[in-house]
Amino acid sequence: MFIISLTYKTSLENVERFIPEHNDFLEKHYQSGNFIASGRKEPRTGGIILADAISKKEVEEIIQEDPFYIHQVADYTITEFIPSKYNEHFKFFIKNL
């Protein structure tokens, strides 16, 4: 699993111009099963995406499709983690345990 942390590097006014395209990007990857959860940071300095992918390389390739990436609106940090404890309600997200 991966945590993708987006940090805006431009004004919120500029970010908001790309929100509809970004939402389409998110929906595409929810439908494919790559994304588990997403939302904006508070305060609104960026966002977080929880992703299920085969490798960091796959996540990097997915990010390159994001309009925020294409239009240089955000920087991305990718953190891979291996869940070792989880709430039973989310067990179906955890593979190979």
Rank of each mutant, 00 (worst) to 15 (best):
P20M: 08
H29Q: 05
F25I: 03
Y30D: 14
K41V: 13
Q64A: 13
Q64M: 11
H22L: 08
G47R: 10
I48V: 14
G39P: 06
F25S: 02
E58M: 14
H29C: 12
F35K: 01
Y30T: 15
P43I: 09
I63G: 07
P20C: 03
H22R: 12
E61G: 03
E21Q: 08
R40V: 08
G33C: 11
I48R: 15
P20R: 05
K28N: 07
E58I: 14
K28V: 02
E65P: 09
I49Y: 13
I54G: 08
E61H: 13
K41Q: 14
S38V: 01
E60F: 00
A37N: 06
S32P: 04
S38T: 07
L26C: 10
Q31F: 05
I62V: 01
G46W: 01
A51E: 01
A51Y: 02
L50K: 10
R40Q: 10
N34F: 01
E21G: 03
R40K: 05
S32Q: 13
H22K: 04
E58H: 12
A53F: 06
T45L: 12
I62E: 02
A53L: 06
S32W: 06
V59K: 08
V59W: 12
E58A: 15
I48L: 15
I36Y: 08
V59I: 11
I36Q: 05
A51C: 01
I54P: 03
P20S: 09
E21V: 01
E61L: 07
N34L: 00
E65A: 11
E61A: 10
Y30I: 14
E65D: 15
Q31V: 13
E60A: 00
K57R: 05
D66C: 04
I63V: 13
A53P: 06
T45F: 06
G47L: 07
G46K: 02
H22A: 08
S32F: 04
E42P: 04
D66A: 04
K57Q: 09
D52H: 13
H29G: 04
K56Y: 04
A53Q: 06
D66S: 02
A37H: 12
F25M: 05
I49Q: 13
R44S: 03
G33M: 10
I54V: 10
R40L: 06
D52Q: 15
I54Q: 15
D52Y: 14
R44T: 00
I49D: 12
P43H: 09
I48W: 10
S38A: 04
F35P: 00
E61V: 09
F35A: 00
G46M: 01
D52R: 14
K28D: 10
R44N: 05
E60Q: 01
G39D: 07
Y30L: 14
I63T: 03
L26G: 05
G46P: 02
E42S: 07
I48P: 12
K28S: 07
G46E: 01
A51H: 02
P20D: 10
E60M: 01
E42D: 14
D24S: 13
L26R: 06
